[in-house]
Design a protein around this nucleic acid. Structure first.
Lengths: 216, 216
DNA sequence: AGAATAGTAGAACAGATGTTCTTTAAGGCT
DNA sequence: AGCCTTAAAGAACATCTGTTCTACTATTCT
């Protein structure tokens, strides 16, 4: 008895990928001709030929005589998104909010931003702040941007940190460098000059993980 | 913001329920005639009539002339994430890449970024570019940032656009304002001065939807 | 080499499907 | 009543779309 070859050809793999891609993007399954166009096939019969094979091997399910009647097993679905609470705003003259423990367990009424897991990369204690005002412009961050923060008290040299300057009563986002006896805070815009502060004056409130700016 | 919140008729509620039910059961959206049969309607035009209302009120989204092109906003079978291909980079001295919307080639789009659906908000023709160099700093965009673009040829006044300046052979990201006989390109950093160009010299390559900066 | 099998091409067909047009009916409003 | 909006029925139409048939090429097996 001959064993069936279980491997998929590159073309079949591409078809699977395309169907998933199409599905996720459009919200409904592709037609045969969508697949032909999207995978660069030359004929609908080629698509049909390969779809039949894919169905026989259990990679998908088809419904006869039904337009776009292609069904992918949903082992691909969900599990990739997270809801990050937007717990407050960051502005020059206000203290940087720090998440209190209540904010974590409650999925409730707080504002949230939906992000994908790869943006967080498994980090713990991530929250989001909305930038108010244009005082963070030297960090290339503008009013309305969302800053994803991780709740840490120390950062590595060169990382972007949210720093509260006690004396100046000012919040700022800068690249952090601990140097001999001083702390250097470097704007992201390298044409601008750094500022130096005493270690006792700079309170690290968090590490900046990502910046999201939504336009239009 | 106050919205006139009309209630849905029982028929419309039933249609929504049926679409969701159908979707979960079959794995693909229903056709108009499926809805007619499933909801006991008397004509496709009745279904169409109510679907138009439902679409206008945001309960679903339809794709014209596409079989079963009905999309429910919060189905979770299809996920909330999208894979956006990073089709190239944007730099001052290079033309801005334009997506080849004919063949979705999985080999060409080796790099993708995963974003949530609410960042795209249902827009079509979205792709991503990686920013190379710091020439876009006046748009508060730095080297390494990911720019989400929509493939359009015209933009509204005040929108951030990717513009190719023919004479200067330069790509730039600016807020776009069509003024009498001239085009004003305004940096996002409002402290910087705008530049003015002739309409024939500015080629709009796309609209900037979002900026994602990943640090650390 | 010859035969069998896998894969490709192109076209044509039949049914599925979205859209639109006309007509009719039921309430609400002045 | 007269007029408007909302809703519905039915039919016709143009496409979209899955399916299938035939012919052709490439590869594998004996």
């Amino acid at each position: 008895m001959k064993l069936k070859q279980k491997e998929l050809s590159t073309k079949q793999q591409r078809i699977i990928d395309y169907i998933r891609h199409f599905w996720l993007e459009k919200g409904y399954p592709p037609s045969i001709r969508d697949i032909v166009g999207g995978c660069g096939l030359s004929s609908t019969s080629v698509a049909d030929y390969n779809l039949k094979i894919l169905e026989k091997r259990g990679y998908l399910r088809r419904h006869r005589e039904v337009s776009r009647g292609i069904q992918l097993p949903d082992r691909f679905a969900s599990g990739h998104k997270l809801y990050i609470p937007i717990i407050g705003q960051i502005a020059a003259g206000e203290p940087i909010p720090v998440p209190d423990n209540d904010a974590w367990d409650s999925t409730a009424s707080a504002d949230t931003i939906e992000v994908t897991r790869d943006l967080i990369r498994g980090r713990e204690g991530v929250y989001a702040l909305k930038v108010k005002g244009s005082s963070m412009m030297d960090a290339l961050i503008n009013d309305g941007d969302i800053v994803l923060m991780q709740n840490v008290n120390t950062v590595e040299n060169g990382e972007m940190a949210a720093v509260w300057l006690r004396a100046e009563r000012e919040a700022t986002l800068k690249k952090f460098y601990a140097e001999s006896g001083k702390i250097r805070l470097q704007p992201a815009n390298s044409q601008m000059k750094p500022i130096f502060v005493e270690p006792g004056n700079a309170e690290i409130q968090g590490r900046v993980i990502a910046v999201i700016r939504q336009l239009a």
